[in-house]
C-alpha cells in the first residue's frame, strides 16, 4: 500500500477506530491495517508502511531494552550498556546473545551488519536531533524504518509501548506494564501517609553538568518520574523551559543550591547502579552548601539507584530501589 495514495483511507480508518471506542490506534501510532500483511505506522519520521506481524526486527537505542523485554523477534540490536544493570537475567542473556549491529552512538551504526541481519523492520529509538546522525535513506533500502525516540524523560511509558506495537509484541509488553502498575499501586499505598505530604528535591546525574553546576530534576525527569508514581512530589519548575529533558531539569550554579532546595523536606540524588556516586553528584555532596540544607541536616537525604529506567521491566527494579531508599521515612 502506498502511503501517499492511501492517506484518505488511513484517516477514515483511524477515525472509524476512534469512533468505535478503540483508542488503541491513536496510542500506538498504528493508523490502519490491511489484509496484505502490512499496516501504516505513524513514527517520528512520518507514516511508514510496515509488516503487520514483523518476523525479523532490528532495534537501536531506547528500542533495545523495550523490544528485548517485549520478546520481539529481534535479529540485531545496538549496544545499550546503560540498560544492562536493570535487565533481568533472561533479558541480559538475550541482549548478550543478539548480534550487535551498532555501537552506543548513532554514528556507530554498521549498515552492512544490518543488511546482513536481513530484517523486515528497523526500529530506531534515538531522540529526533540524533536521527540526523543516521543514514535513514540507506536503512530504508534494507527494510521499513520507524524512528520512535524519547522526548521528555517520563514519556518512556508511551514510547516503549509504541516500539513494542511496531514490532508486533504488545502481549508481553502489557504483562510487564501490569506488573509495574501493581507494584507502584502497592508502594503508593505503603507511603500514602508520608510521601504526599512532603516536598522533595532531586540532584540528578543525567547529561553533562559543567563544573560548578548541578542538575536539578523536577517532576517528570529521569530521577523523579517513577517516584512520582508512588506519591512523591518534586516541587518547582525550570526557570526557562527548553525542548525535551530541558523542560523538566536544569543546571544552575552550585551557588543556587540553597535557594533551590531550601523548602525541600526530603532530598534525593541519583547514584550509579552499583551504588557509587557519580562525580557530578559527589561535587554537590561535598559542598558545605549541601550540608547546610535543612533536609540534609535533618538526615533526610537519600540516594536513588536505577534512575535511567526506560521500560516497565526496568522501572520495577527502580521501584524496589526507591522503596529501599525511602523506607526510613516510614519510621519517622
Amino acid at each position: 500500500m502506498s502511503i501517499r495514495r492511501s492517506s484518505g483511507l488511513v484517516g477514515a480508518a483511524s477515525l472509524a477506530l476512534i469512533l468505535t471506542g478503540c483508542g488503541f490506534s491513536s496510542e500506538s501510532g498504528s493508523d490502519s491495517s490491511d489484509k496484505g500483511g502490512t499496516r501504516v505506522f505513524a513514527a517520528d519520521n512520518g507514516k511508514i508502511t510496515i509488516p503487520a506481524a514483523p518476523k525479523r526486527v532490528v532495534a537501536t537505542g531506547y528500542a533495545v531494552p523495550a523490544l528485548i523485554e517485549a520478546d520481539a523477534p529481534l535479529v540485531g540490536i545496538s549496544s545499550w550498556k546503560r540498560g544492562e544493570p536493570m535487565m533481568s537475567k533472561e533479558d541480559l542473556a538475550e541482549y548478550k546473545k543478539l548480534p550487535k549491529v551498532a555501537g552506543e552512538l548513532a554514528t556507530e551504526t554498521n549498515y552492512e551488519a544490518i543488511a546482513e541481519a536481513d530484517p523486515d523492520l528497523i526500529v530506531i529509538g534515538v531522540p529526533a536531533p540524533v536521527l540526523g546522525d543516521i543514514d535513514v535513506k540507506r536503512l530504508e533500502g534494507i527494510a521499513p524504518v520507524v524512528a520512535i525516540g524519547p522526548t521528555v524523560p517520563s514519556a518512556w511509558r508511551e514510547l516503549s509501548r509504541k516500539q513494542s506495537d511496531a514490532a508486533g509484541a504488545l502481549k508481553q509488553f502489557d504483562a510487564a506494564k501490569n506488573t509495574y502498575e501493581d507494584k507502584a499501586a502497592e508502594l503508593a499505598k505503603k507511603y500514602k501517609d508520608v510521601l504526599p505530604q512532603l516536598k522533595l528535591g532531586h540532584v540528578g546525574s543525567y547529561g553533562d553538568a559543567a563544573k560548578g553546576t548541578f542538575q536539578r530534576e523536577f517532576n517528570g525527569s529521569w530521577g523523579t518520574n517513577i517516584a512520582e508514581d508512588i506519591g512523591a512530589e518534586y516541587y518547582g519548575k525550570v526557570k526557562k523551559a527548553g525542548p525535551g529533558s530541558q523542560s523538566v531539569s536544569e543546571y544552575p550554579s552550585i551557588e543556587e543550591l540553597p535557594a533551590a532546595f531550601r523548602e525541600a523536606d526530603v532530598m534525593t540524588y541519583s547514584v550509579n547502579a552499583d551504588g557509587s556516586v557519580p562525580k557530578s553528584v559527589q561535587y554537590v555532596l561535598d559542598s558545605k552548601l549541601w550540608k547546610n540544607l535543612p533536609a540534609v541536616k535533618a538526615g533526610k537525604a537519600f540516594p536513588l539507584r536505577y534512575t535511567e529506567a526506560a521500560t516497565y521491566g526496568e522501572a520495577v527494579v527502580t521501584l524496589d530501589a526507591i522503596d529501599k531508599s525511602l523506607a526510613p521515612l516510614l519510621n519517622r
Partner: peptide, 8 residues
C-alpha cells in the same frame, strides 16, 4: 579553561 567548580 574555567575557574568554576575548582574549589574542592
Amino acid at each position: 579553561g574555567s575557574l568554576a567548580g575548582r574549589e574542592q
